[in-house]
């Protein structure tokens, strides 16, 4: 991930053509979400819950230091990777672990119970009950990106077109070379994770969607929307040639598709092996090995000059 010159032009490579780049980045992102869950479990196991929760604000600064380093770089590919990993670390430490401390320890909240007799501890733990309540803040931030003329996110650009905002907002003053992809990817990772968590948590909240038939209907509707949405985005993703752009675009595609995984897990239709790495050591080792190989493949993939510091070529729309 250094500021090296591109090994070869991606257009000349026989391997690194659509749909390979898109497929690899999607699989990588899908594994990354599972492995991020595993990482949390491992950190908690190694440090103990009490120490983990105490150290989490400090651990989050590791992500910020990475981000600082990435932002100084002129290499878009490097910036993208750093922004992604920093986003995951900060989300994990400053949101998940910190909410865990607030909910479980500081506020003394109780987990939501499930089952016919109400005596089964559901997956909605105190930290997730807090997270569900942040949906208003999330929507407020989404308003900012909807009304920001410099946003390049395809979803917000679509909103702008449908709301007839583009004329009023005017042309973006920033070009691709003016953008720092470390902070863009960092924010994207953070917001996409937040958005998908909120989506799942609201659909899992019996206080909002009720129980029994309504609960089933809402969550099956959720599966339908998530599948169509991620499928549509995946069809776009597999047309990408630039690995940096594909990586950024794969963040929401993988996360939106993961919504289905959470719902199937909620209904007991799949085993969440990523939160039981001790029980599924072999499976998780294979998943981790595949993840590392995919990263190496993407790092070795030929890059356009614009991805590694040069901005002479036209770039695709960014994620």
């Amino acid at each position: 991930m250094s500021n090296s010159t591109p090994a070869a032009h991606p257009g000349k490579s026989k391997l690194w053509r659509p749909p390979i780049v898109g497929i690899i980045t999607f699989v990588l992102m899908f594994f990354a979400i599972g492995l991020a869950h595993t990482m949390m479990v491992l950190i908690e196991h190694q440090l103990g819950q009490e120490l983990t929760l105490k150290l989490s604000p400090l651990l989050g600064f590791v992500g910020i230091i990475m981000l600082w380093y990435g932002i100084k770089s002129k290499n878009e590919n490097f910036q993208t990777w750093i922004g992604f990993f920093a986003g995951i670390i900060v989300w994990m430490c400053w949101v998940e672990f910190f909410y865990m401390w607030y909910g479980r320890e500081n506020w003394g909240m109780l987990p939501r119970m499930d089952g016919a007799d109400g005596l089964t501890v559901s997956g909605t733990w105190p930290e997730y009950m807090i997270m569900g309540s942040t949906v208003g803040t999330l929507l407020m931030m989404c308003c900012f990106y909807t009304f920001d003329k410099d946003t390049r996110c395809n979803m917000f650009l679509w909103f702008q077109r449908k709301l007839g905002l583009q004329e009023g907002l005017g042309v973006s003053t920033k070009k691709a070379k003016d953008r720092n992809y470390a902070i863009i990817t960092f924010m994207e990772t953070f917001f996409v994770t937040w958005f998908c968590y909120a989506w799942n948590l609201l659909c899992f909240d019996p206080g909002l969607v009720g129980v029994d038939n309504m609960f089933l209907a809402v969550n099956m509707g959720s599966v339908f929307i998530a599948t169509i949405w991620s499928g549509f985005c995946f069809m776009r993703l597999i047309k990408f040639k630039r690995t940096s752009t594909a990586l950024r675009y794969a963040i929401p595609v993988g996360n939106v598709f993961w919504i289905n995984v959470e719902i199937l897990g909620k209904f007991g239709m799949l085993t969440e092996i990523w939160v039981n790495p001790w029980k599924y050591t072999l499976e998780m080792s294979v998943m981790f090995a595949a993840f590392v190989v995919l990263i190496i493949l993407l790092l070795m993939a030929p890059k356009k000059k614009s991805e590694v510091g040069g901005w002479n070529e036209q770039t695709e729309s960014t994620g």
Partner: peptide, 8 residues
Amino acid sequence: MLVVGPQG
């Protein structure tokens, strides 16, 4: 319940 909501 203690595992995920110790104090409460």
